[in-house]
Amino acid sequence: MARRILWRLVNVVPLLFVISLLVFFISQAGPADPVRGALSQKMSPAQIEQIRQAYGLDRPAWAQYLSWLKDMVAHGGGVSLSLRSPVSGIVFPAFRNTLLLVAGATLLTVVLGVAIGFVAGIRHGRLADRVTMLLVQVGSNLPIYWLGLIIIYLTAVERRWLPAGGMHDLRGDGGFGDLLLHLVAPSFAASLVSTLIIARFVRAAVIESERSDYVRTYRSQGFGRAAILGKHVGRNVLPPIVNITGLTVGSVITGVVFVETIFSWPGIGSVLLNAIAASDYPVIQSGVLLVAVTFVLVNLATDVVLDLLNPRLRHGAA
C-alpha cells in the first residue's frame, strides 16, 4: 500500500510540470506585449530592446520559464500590472475565501447529493422518486447565474433570512456565525450541479445493490431493510461516492467561480475576472496555477483515500 501511495505521489510531478508550462504559456501567447503595453509609444526600438534585456525578456523561453517558476514557488508570482502590488497579497487572501466556499459547497454536495440519491433510490419507481428525478433534470439544466439571483431574491429580499452577498455583515461583529450565514446561499448555488451528479449516481448505486443477490439473501433471512441499507448497501456505495466526490471537485470549483460574482464573494474568481479585463498576466498566471495545483492535490488525496478504503490493498495484497 505504501508503495502504491508513493507511486501516486511520483506521478503527480510530471503533471504539475505540464500545468506550469501551460500556465507560463498564457503570458507568452497573450495578445499584449508586456514591454510595449507598459511603456510609451514614443520609445525607440533600441530603448525597448534595452528594457527587454533589463527584464530578461530577450533570453530563451526555457530560461524565462525557469526564473518565472522560481518566482512563483518562492513568493507566489511577481507584481500585478494593474494594481502595482505583489501578486501574492492579492491572490492568496482571495484564494482563502474561495477555499471556504469550495469547502461549504463540497460539504453540501456530499450531504444533499447522498441524501437525495438515497431517498430516490429506495423509493425507486414510486412518486417520491419520480418527483425527485424531475427536479434533478430541471435543476441540472438551470443556468446557475439566474438561480443565484433567484436565491438572493427569495432569501434576502422577499424574506430577510440570509444576507444578500459578501462575506461579513458590515455592522456585525464579523464573527464565525456571521460568516456561516453568508456562506449558506453561495455554497448551495455553487454545489447544485455537482449535488445532482452525485444524487443521480447514488440513486443508481442504491437501486443496483438493492437488486443484488446478497441483499436478497439478507432479506430472506429476515433482516430489516434499515439494517441492510445502513450496514451493507451503505458500505458498498461508499467508495464510489468518495470517488465521484473527488471527480466533482472540479465542477464545484467551476460552480464557485460562477457564483462568486453573483454573491459578491471576494474570491479568486472575481480576482481572475478583473485581471482578465485588465490583461494583468501575473495575477492571471498565479491565480490559475494556484487553483490548478490545488485541484491536482485534491485529486491525489481522493486517490489515496480510495486506496485506504480498498480492503484488498489494506490487507496487504497487490
Partner: peptide, 21 residues
Amino acid sequence: DLMFAFPVILVALSLAAVVRP
C-alpha cells in the same frame, strides 16, 4: 481521467486571457 475532472472554468479563464473573451 485528469481532463475529465479538471475545473473547466480554468480553461475558460486562461483562454480568455490569451484570445480575449
